[in-house]
Amino acid sequence: MEQRVAALVDFYRRVQTERMQGVPILNLALSVEAVGFRRAETPEDAPEPEHEPVAEGVLITPWFMSLVRLPLALQPHGNRVARKFVRDFGSEGFEFIGAHDDAVGYHETCALFSPMDGFATQAQAVETALASLALVRPELAKEVVKASEPVPARRAFFMARRNGPGATP
């Protein structure tokens, strides 16, 4: 799992240096970082390709923060790029969109923040990523240190995303 997550981080670092230079939404106070990735429990009766083991966590970049589902084995795009899927992530369901790069293979993302101009430091972005994960992984709630400044708007945004557009609470 560590190698797959490292490949994901390396890919987005390359995107930052090769494609994002000079793009106004790039927050130069931030860097690419994977937060809280762990192997997700997959139901045995899940349809293919959902039964494949995945790592789940938050990816922070200087231009977005997203929940990510990364298959533990390199996978082809399988005509899933840009397609939307509702997936369980922790205790909630979220709408993910398929992505692919030859270096990383197929993976799925669910945007939390974009652009990242509301974050002054990397530590603040990591703290927000951990707080977001704690909302869907109750076992993390005890481990997350309370933010030094309140972020109710961010939490409200995150919770509104949980079942995708048009979902009812």
Rank of each mutant, 00 (worst) to 15 (best):
E2L: 11
M1C: 12
V54H: 13
E143V: 00
S114H: 12
F85M: 13
H51G: 04
A123S: 14
S66N: 13
G93D: 04
E149V: 05
P138V: 02
P24Q: 07
K146S: 15
D88G: 03
S132E: 10
P169Y: 08
A167C: 00
F89C: 09
A141C: 02
V81I: 12
L140W: 15
M20Y: 09
A134M: 03
L130S: 09
A134I: 05
L72D: 03
C110L: 01
A46H: 09
Y106W: 06
A29H: 12
S91F: 05
Q3F: 10
M65I: 12
L28K: 15
P150Y: 07
V104A: 04
F96E: 08
A55C: 10
S148R: 07
F11N: 14
S31L: 11
V15A: 04
A160H: 00
Q124N: 03
E143W: 07
T128E: 06
N27Y: 02
G36A: 03
H100L: 07
V145Q: 12
I60P: 01
A82L: 11
E33H: 07
D101W: 03
L67D: 09
S91A: 13
F158K: 05
A129H: 02
R13K: 15
G78A: 12
F64D: 01
V23N: 14
L140R: 09
V126H: 02
Q124H: 14
W63Y: 05
H77E: 15
I60N: 01
A111P: 07
E108P: 08
F113H: 10
A29W: 02
F11C: 14
R154F: 14
A55K: 01
A46K: 04
A6R: 12
E92W: 05
T168S: 08
L130V: 02
L112Q: 06
A82H: 11
E149P: 00
G90Q: 00
A111Y: 06
F119M: 05
L26R: 13
N27C: 07
R137E: 14
A141T: 12
P165C: 11
P71M: 05
E149W: 05
Y12Q: 07
R13M: 11
L135A: 14
M159D: 02
R80G: 00
Y12W: 15
R155E: 07
G78L: 12
E95G: 00
T168Y: 09
E127H: 07
E41Q: 10
P169R: 11
L59Q: 05
F89M: 01
F96K: 05
G22R: 04
M1S: 15
F85E: 10
E50S: 11
A156D: 13
I97F: 11
P76C: 03
E56V: 15
A7M: 00
R162S: 12
A40W: 02
A156C: 02
A125H: 05
V9K: 01
R14C: 09
T168G: 00
G118A: 15
F119N: 06
S132D: 00
P47F: 04
N79E: 09
R161H: 13
F89G: 00
A134P: 12
T61G: 03
L74Q: 14
N163L: 04
P62N: 02
Q75A: 06
P62S: 07
P138K: 01
H77N: 01
F119A: 02
E41N: 11
P115A: 08
P47M: 10
Q122C: 00
S91V: 15
E2V: 08
V81Q: 11
L30I: 01
V104D: 07
S91Q: 14
E56P: 05
G78V: 00
R161A: 06
R83C: 09
F157Y: 14
V32A: 00
A111Q: 13
